[in-house]
């Protein structure tokens, strides 16, 4: 039961971009379409789960004073794996994500989970935590990307979903559209959880 909670808390209570409000840089930058959002999210799931497991394995070996540097080394090695793999097998997504794949190294969610969870818990809870948070991150990115893509380009995962004479509201795929749609979603989620509580 407790293990299940470790997994499910990442899906709503600690949903990274909206509850923890962490890792906003990729959230704003790569959600121009649902596809890039999903790709980024999958990369983050892999890196987060693997780094959580490895950090948890090594938590008694890493000296406290150099822990941040050690976590970065661990995370960076997984990020390199993701980068090379996406370059080899998903070149289109690799091109559209660009610099943001290497930047997963400094994504605060991953370092934050390593520091706050994996360095204090066993291997299985850490893996579940990484999976849950990563899944929540992926969902948020995909939903935000889908909203922006539908309004800003009239498509979803590259297929036309709006009527053919639709003139897209391209503001939504520009940078200010990212800020406004993220803010509106955040406000809606806060309003929703407020009504849940009362």
């Amino acid at each position: 039961m407790k293990l299940l909670r470790t997994f499910t808390k990442g899906l709503w209570e600690e949903l990274p971009p909206f509850r923890l409000v962490l890792g906003l840089c990729p959230v704003l930058a790569v959600t121009k379409s649902a596809e890039t959002g999903l790709g980024m999210g999958l990369a983050v799931i892999f890196v987060l789960t693997c780094s959580n497991v490895l950090v948890s394995c090594l938590r008694n070996v890493i000296p406290r004073k150099v822990r941040i540097a050690s976590y970065i080394v661990i995370i960076a090695s997984f990020v390199v794996m993701v980068e090379l793999a996406s370059q080899a097998f998903f070149y289109k997504i690799y091109e559209s994500l660009g610099i943001f794949i290497p930047l997963i190294v400094v994504n605060c969610i991953i370092l934050g989970r390593a520091e706050a969870f994996a360095s204090r818990n066993g291997i299985i809870p850490s893996a579940l935590d990484g999976l849950g948070i990563g899944l929540g991150f992926t969902m948020s990115l995909t939903v935000l990307g889908a909203i922006r893509e539908i309004l800003g380009a009239g498509t979803l995962f590259g297929t036309q979903v709006m009527w053919s004479s639709f003139r897209p509201f391209t503001f939504m795929v520009e940078a200010p559209g990212a800020f406004i749609s993220l803010g509106v979603l955040l406000a809606l989620m806060n309003a929703f959880s407020k009504t849940q509580q009362s």
Partner: peptide, 9 residues
């Protein structure tokens, strides 16, 4: 400004 920087419009 929002409708002006929308390129399609």
């Amino acid at each position: 400004a929002v409708i002006r920087i929308t390129r399609a419009w």
